[in-house]
Each structure stands twice: as structure tokens, then as C-alpha cells.
Simulated assay, not measured.
Amino acid sequence: MSPRTVVLLGSTGSIGTQAVDVITRHPDRFRVTGISAGGADPVALARQAVALGVQTVAVADPDAAGTVFAEVVRASAEAGLNQVGVEVLTGPDAASQLAARGADVVLNGITGSVGLGPTLAALGAGSVLALANKESLVAGGPLVRAAVQRPGQVVPVDSEHSAIAQCLRGGRRSEVRRLVLTASGGPFRGRTRAELADVTAEQALAHPTWSMGPVVTVNSATMVNKGLELIEAHLLFDVPVADISVVVHPQSVVHSMVEFADGSTIAQASPPDMRLPIALGLSWPDRLPEAAAPVDWTRAGRWDFEPLDEDVFGAVALARAAVAASATHPAVYNAANEEAVAAFLAGRIGFLDVVATVEEVLREHDGGPVRDVADVHAAEDWARARARERVAAAG
């Protein structure tokens, strides 16, 4: 069996670097043909390109292209390679160009709704989309669903949605009663709103379980990430948001569950390690041997489950309301949050102001259909501008 060709989008980020680890441990299964990144770390990108032997590197920042190529030359020389045969694509559409080249699998590990273009490009090219970029599905849900050409073309990489996909193998779709998303609770589980008023960015970035990028980590602390995941689950599995529950599970061993009509619940359990859902995304429907360590059943342990305190963490309820309001409200939810998180990390607003900003912007949005990417961008641009105005007013 010939190896699957793979394109890694966001290769220098958390998902991308772990995907590289999975791939390099299974060289007979995968061949990476292209990688992409924003361009903030050209040295890491160049070293990945040479180590993986890729044909194409895509860089979003056109000013970083020359540095990336120079670093590829340097890394090639250090590796004893006499010839540099790497093509460098540059600009905001570079990742989309790379995703459209028809690799067997495109893993979209880009952070933010800028991943929508590459998501649509990969689907349009007929590639399997291993989707870690939940924001592209949230923002452009109708477009993404319309672009899917066949069942199984989108394979979720988020640990929760990968878990649900695995659990759904245990029954027919008509037998599903509800989906149960688990949440770690983040660093502020059990706190009151008053106790959250003065938390710092440093505290919000200290996630107790997962190692993620700053935006996703803050989203986990505010529970916006769980709101995004609820919308993603609704779109991926065609389940009404009313039939998707969120439960807090601080150990992060049970990654999500499916409850069936007969009263049985199937759960997927493994120690918190993103290499497992990444490996499944790359190899689906097959499982790679020893992708991650299993649960050690010889050691005593406990799994706790508790309801989400939606009076303190209102982001999930806002996500449900966004789905019900209009096709563009989820894009507004995500875009307003991205602006608010940036402001929080920069010290311009407080922690509680993040979700409050999202709520205010959602309340003001008139809503509308999503007929094309322009509709998504228009909703996002409006939301970002309105969020920035709210942040400025708060300052």
C-alpha cells in the first residue's frame, strides 16, 4: 500500500508539530508534500520542510518568504543536500493554493476563521479534510457542508469530536438520543463570577490539562471553546443543538460520549494526548498502532463529572442562541471573540469582558444568510469592528 500524501496547514503550531511527530513515526504510512504557516517562525518552518522532504511551503506573510527560502537553503546545506527543490507560495491565499493541490489528506491546523478558505479548497479538490480548525466550520458552516463531496470526507481532529465519531461507530444515526461534550472546566472551574473579575492573562493561560496556543487556551478558560465545539458538533453530525449537552470532566480522560435511544452511553477514553485524534484524522478509518499511551487500568483513579455552571460561564448558552438566530450569527460569535481575546491578552479588557463583548455584539447583529464566502467575511468584518468599538469604549 502506497503512503498517503499529506498537506499540513499550520505546521509550526501545536497541532502541526504533533502531526509531524505522528507522521515521522509512521514513514511507511504518510508522505508530506506541503506545509504552511503564517511565517512568524521561518526557521522552524524551513527545518520542517527539509526534514519532511516537502515539495511546497506556503507562507501567509509575504515579507517572510525570502527569509523562509534562505532558511530552507541553510537547513538543506546542514542536512548535506546539494539541491533545494522547494517551491515557496506566499500571501494570504497561499494555504488555500496548497490545500487545493489534491493531496490524499489535508490536515487543517490553522487557528481562527482564516482557515475557511483552505477548508473549502481541500474539500473542492476531493481531499480528505482532517479538521482541527473548528472556526472555519463555525463561521462558514453552510458553505463547508455544501462543499463536502462524499460521506467521511471530513474527519474531526478536535479530541471531543474525534471521540464522538468513534462512539458513533457503535450504533445507527437513528438510534442517537444526544451527544455529550466533555469540558475540562479550564483553570477557573468552580469559581464564582466575583472571583473571575480580576484574573490575569497569565492565569487564564495556565490550563490544567492541555498544552495549546494562547487563543485556544483562553477560549477554554472562558468556555467559548466549548461553545464553538457545540456548534461544530451540530454541523459535523447533524444533531440539533438542543440534543448536545456539555458536562465538566476535569480529568480530561473521557473525551466525549454518545447516548443512544435504549439508554446506553458509549464513551471514548484515553489520557489527554492530541496525537491520538491527529493520528485518526490522518489514517481514518484505520487506527495507527501506539499513536498514544492508553489508560493504565492497573492504577487507582477517579473520573468526575459535574454540570456546567452556565450562570458563571455563559458562552455555551450564547453559542446555542447564535445557532438559533441566523446563519451568520455563529461567524459573529467567533469573530467578536477573537477580537475580545486579543484585547484581553493585551491587557485592554478584563476576563469577564471577553464573553460580555461577544454577547453585546451578538445582540446587535441583524443576521442573514450565508450564500458565499463574502457573506461570511462581511459578518466577520462587522463583528470585529463592533467588538473593537466595544473594547475601546470599555477602556
Rank of each mutant, 00 (worst) to 15 (best):
V199G: 02
R371F: 04
M1G: 15
R302V: 06
D198T: 12
Q268W: 06
G190A: 03
S211C: 13
S127R: 04
L352A: 02
S96R: 14
G301N: 07
V72H: 04
R371N: 11
E338G: 02
G112I: 09
V295E: 03
P294A: 10
G281M: 15
L282Y: 02
V247M: 08
D158S: 08
V144N: 13
L235G: 07
A327P: 00
V86R: 01
V253L: 04
L288D: 11
A242N: 08
I110K: 10
L168K: 07
A292V: 12
A77I: 05
A324F: 00
V138T: 09
V246L: 07
G124S: 04
P285G: 11
S14E: 05
G367A: 01
R150F: 08
E290R: 15
A233V: 06
A79F: 02
E359K: 14
A64I: 05
I231W: 12
P62C: 08
F237L: 01
G124Q: 11
L120T: 03
G10W: 08
G227F: 09
R4M: 14
S211H: 13
A394P: 12
D372A: 00
S264R: 09
V254E: 02
V295R: 00
V254D: 10
H161I: 09
V358G: 08
N108S: 09
A139Q: 13
A291I: 08
I15S: 06
H249S: 04
G126F: 02
V241L: 00
G16N: 01
G367E: 11
Q48D: 06
A394C: 14
P3H: 09
V128Y: 13
A197C: 05
P285W: 15
L362I: 05
V341C: 04
T5G: 12
L116I: 09
A121S: 03
A378I: 13
S211V: 15
A267V: 01
G185K: 03
R189I: 04
L120Q: 07
E359F: 04
L120G: 05
D286T: 15
V144R: 14
L345P: 05
L280E: 15
V241S: 00
V155I: 15
Q251C: 05
K134I: 08
T192R: 03
V341R: 00
E380N: 06
Y333W: 03
A70F: 13
S96M: 11
Q149E: 14
E306L: 14
V332I: 09
S211R: 13
A315Q: 03
T298D: 12
A340D: 00
G190I: 02
G213D: 12
P187D: 01
